[in-house]
Design a protein around this nucleic acid. Sequence first.
RNA 1: GGUCCUGUAGCUCAGUAGGAUAGAGCACCAGAUUCCUAAUCUGGGGGUCACAAGUUCGAAUCUUGUCAGGAUCACCA
Length: 584
Amino acid sequence: MNVIQKILEFIQVEIKDLISEGIVSSSADLTKINLDVTKDPAHGDFSTNAAMVLSKFSDMKPHDLGKIIADRLKEKNEFKTIEIAGPGFINIRLVRKFWRSLIPIILKSGIGYGDSNIGKGQLVNIEYVSANPTGPMHIGHARGAVFGDALSSLLEKVGYKVTREYYINDDGSQIDVLARSTYLRYREALGEDIGEIPEGLYPGDYLKTLGEFIKRKDGDKWKNLSENEWLGSFRKLAIQEMMALIREDLISLGVVHNVFVSEAELVGKGANDEVLKELKKDDLIYTGILDAPKGKSSEGWEARSQLLFRSSQFGDDVDRALKKVDGEWTYFASDIAYHRDKFRRGFNKMIDVWGADHKGYVKRMQSAVDAITKGEGSLSVSLCNLVNLLEDGKPSKMSKREGSFVTLRDVVKAVGPDAVRFVMLTRNNDVPLDFDLKIVLEQSKDNPLFYVQYAHARICSLLRNVLEIFPDIAISDDDLSGADLNLLTSDSEIEMIKELANWPEVIKRSAKANEPHRVAFYLYELAASFHSFWNKGNSEEELRFIIPSRVDKTIVRLALARSVAIVIASGLGVMGVKPVEEMR
RNA sequence: GGUCCUGUAGCUCAGUAGGAUAGAGCACCAGAUUCCUAAUCUGGGGGUCACAAGUUCGAAUCUUGUCAGGAUCACCA
């Protein structure tokens, strides 16, 4: 149940009446009417701006119009008080019974509480990570991985049918570089002194292992052959091995994709040629020369005749090249073919998760999707910004081109997958993120993961401890949902429930904005409220969860506590973090 | 030069389908432990929401301009 939806419906019914009675003009813009959860308890539980919005479409002042709406809403017995305040807000306070009734609903829904169906089962393809198969993942890749995974869960929760996809860029020239780097390590394994790894090749130690592996497998079979004799085999083998590394890294984070698509395979199947043909038919392709980019970076620019796609017809700044001067496909060409492939697999809704350095690429890709789907497909791109890995405030550099970079594996080993996942979601994906290895391991409220987990663990400990005082009570969620809710009378209890009532709305808004980090902030606040409530028991024994003299009160408090735990678990589930039962 | 992002408390940041007195954590100050994990909690000070106009009942939020910081910009991926 979504409380906000329900009340909004009540209001909408009244508004329709006002319109049909001619009090409000039928041209009224109803989309501007909202129902907000109030920040100030003096304003009730919810407030709506309906009267202020509608007064423009009627002869009445906001206050008078508000009074009419309020009077009619008063008929409903869900409402305790309805007041007009300020410039014309209608402040609504619900009867406590209404709030209390949420508890059994949460207990019965379990972590499915908050789910909705705004996606209506629509297929969504979310492509994320897509790290080039040239080495193990580093911490920056992890952000995309965690973000994409959480976004997927989020959209699933609101009723989309999500496919989690990984695009393997295994066709470009960087794979040649990888193969050459591997060949060098192979020769090293054979005992040759290779000296410094030349500029432009991958220096990472992980290729040593591969070189040695090839030596064990093939001996010196490749040693005296020319590059074009070994290149193909080394490419294939290297990609295979690098993807194995990456998959291991993903598994260590708990990130699982449903589909892996190989660029090389798509190109091999002629997907690029097909796209070309299709675009040609629509007259969206021509051979031409692009202008030099304006500004500073035009040094060294030379005019080039290339095969171009008319992306500027679809909102891009300039047309974009599909083939390089040497006749090879550009990455863009393959990417168009890939997105066409997604569309043909039934995905009208596509989301790509990229590094923020690819920002300049968004428009052209969206133009291409527009063109190849004739406007039926939509692509939205979420960009993940840099991760600054810190160690007690000191930056630790990571770069894929350098020999020693901080691998995801090292970080996961140091702090665990849950910490990585949670921290990655504590910032909007669009802005840089500091990831401090020290803070992440701290057992204090500096560490938001700890703080949230601690709340969950406290609730679990309640359920363990209560049996020592009341050995005979039944405390499954099902049992607790039968608790006597009338015993929830304090303001702080009702406030707690209101926060839980907000969860479905948080989920919905996060999903609409493609912003899973909002879940993390909500959980932090929910945990804060819980800790605060918990500590009230220090000064007022009446407010403890376990009250030895009152089994009935104890049970209803446990029901409340469990509801909080369920929502925490539900939120952590979106983030892919396992809720803990105790802090050890 | 184009495109885009960012600018909110001393620090790190929340807060966009416009809402009432702009929030949280850290740091600082003052408190709470016969008690379910004090690993926590309570209270306090701290603001020109970069600046300026505009839109309107109402702007941190929308529009335009300015300033500052950053990213990116033909064939790489």
